[in-house]
Amino acid sequence: MNDTVLVLSVVSAISAGTPILFAALGEITTERSGIMNLGIEGMMLVGAITGFWIGVETENAWLALLGGALGGILLSLIHAVLAISLRVNQIVSGLALVIVGSGLSAFWGNSGDRPTLVQTKTGVRFDPIFPEVIRDLPVVGPVIFGHDPVVYLSWVLVAAISYFLYRTQTGLSLRAVGEDPGAADASGLSVTRYRYVSTLVGGFGAGLGGAYLAIGVIGTWAAGLTAGAGWIAVALVILSGWRPWFALLAAYAFGALRSLGFTLQIAGIGVPSDFLAMIPFIATYLVVIVVSASPTRARKVAGPAALAKPYSREAR
């Protein structure tokens, strides 16, 4: 029963969706403060290579994950300085970050006199945490209890970020900064501080996602291994209406699409994988169109009002 196509698809959807989910959670936090960071793809790649390299060196999966997150944070710091302090156009800075991230990670993965990381396998991985008895339960075994701890960590993060944004005063303040930095400033909140921290949280999420993709999902390093996962995360943030729980659902739906190619091949249905790769973006189009058709709906799931707008107290 646990070997049916449906169960296997759900399991692989969750596995493939988790890296995107981490990245999207980070980006939701960033964008809620009014900073748009389109550089997720770059931050994920840097997270992936840093995580993978630390995994090879230390043979500790958790250190590898942490290292990946740090890599993402460092890259997001560039964006933070440019977008918040220097008030550079955030679209431009974010796109540049993708290129910098891809370049850095590809270079690092191929250089040095040691055997390059491309040919290496980490040997580190995450093991399922529940005992086999529970994992073998019909359906819920593999779907709920069969995952490695990182998947559960992502669930905890979804709940935590959702609680933070909607139930704490700091979360309220963060959203205020993203909606109307002028009003937030007048209420005595530090726009700069909130924006910096949330941009770094975005880097943390993307780095974590990238590292998990390299060591937990794929298991090897190859230049550009994210294959657009960062862009899917960008689309997912919009699709979810900047809400963590919706991001979880959408991430698994997109994860299913990523693994659907194989399933369809097995079933003998020939659908080009390039077509499947487009679906997340087409879905995002559809959602945006449906949402904007109704003003009330648009209002409810609209992005932060001050998204991608630099804030300067004197400029009024």
């Binding site: 005063q169 309220l172 303040s173 959203r175 205020a176 909606e179 109307d180 009003a183 937030a184 009002a305």
Partner: peptide, 24 residues
């Protein structure tokens, strides 16, 4: 007005209140 339009009335009330009332 210096109100945040996507927030509720009550949310606008607590905005920027001191940290001591954090668990409001």
């Amino acid at each position: 007005f210096k109100l945040i339009s996507s927030f509720t009335v009550a949310e606008n009330m607590v905005l920027g209140l001191n940290a001591k009332s954090r668990n409001i």
